[in-house]
Amino acid sequence: MSKQKKMTLTLPTEELVGSGNLACQGCGANLALRYVLKAFGKRTAICIPACCWAVIDGPFPYSCLGIPVYHCAFETAASTATGVKAGLEMIGDTETQVIAWAGDGGTFDIGIQSLSAAAERNDDILYVCYDNEAYMNTGIQRSSATPTGAWTTTTPVKFPKDQPKKDIDAIMAAHRIPYQATASIAYPEDLYKKAVKAKNIRGTKFIHVLAPCPTGWKSRPEDAVKLARLAVQTSYFPLYEVEDGEKYTLNFKIQNKKSIDEYLKLQGRFRHLKPEAIAAIQAEVDRNWDRLLKKVTAR
């Protein structure tokens, strides 16, 4: 950094995610919930299906969260949250907001049916997918959020994943929900602002947060935020919002796109990739970026 800038903390100091929880070192998912709850505050109930956070929260009878938590079945984050919201309203609590908080497996794969249904009904919940790009809680198995070329325990180096990551954001946009966004733990103010915006919109909101997982990505814990930032700077994971499935807004305009190699080389899960495989990933990232720009400028 050539110029020293004075940093000011713009996020509320209130912490609803307690320390000493069961997250791994450098866990992106841990930071993600910390920032979202700073926006939502105490009048919030959360539904957590099977995912890393089912463990991070702590075993019975403990919880590291300062809000009520319902641990629900794997594929039911959205439908359980819908039920909680309806139940609260029927007993006269219209104030408490309900968050469904699921990993990529619970969102892209096993939970997509109930998520799609809640979005179609436009139920008044915030659904957050913290995406660490594999089934990390069960020991790093591939999900449909796992990117092309990545090693996981079910996509070994000799047979890496050869399908692209599922475009969950396009799927959610097709539901024309009032608000959705991508977000990153490397940009806490942006994530916080998006959560505040979601909090003030009635209907289904969806936030997709890239949450680096040092354990599963075979990266250094201290690189988690750096990796999340590189994912944005390389346009691997651009930051944008979509309103009503149509109005796209780019939140982070990339001037000099960094090469995907800078992002990949810090992660052991991509170590086996040959230059031509990396070039193919770069081409895929570029295509996705162009596709997004078209959506942003189309309106």
Binding site: A45, D57, P68, V69
Partner: peptide, 14 residues
């Protein structure tokens, strides 16, 4: 499930 008395329900049970 209420913010007035936050508890975690049905989580990991050893």
């Amino acid at each position: 499930l209420t913010p007035d008395a936050p508890c975690a329900f049905d989580g990991l049970t050893g």
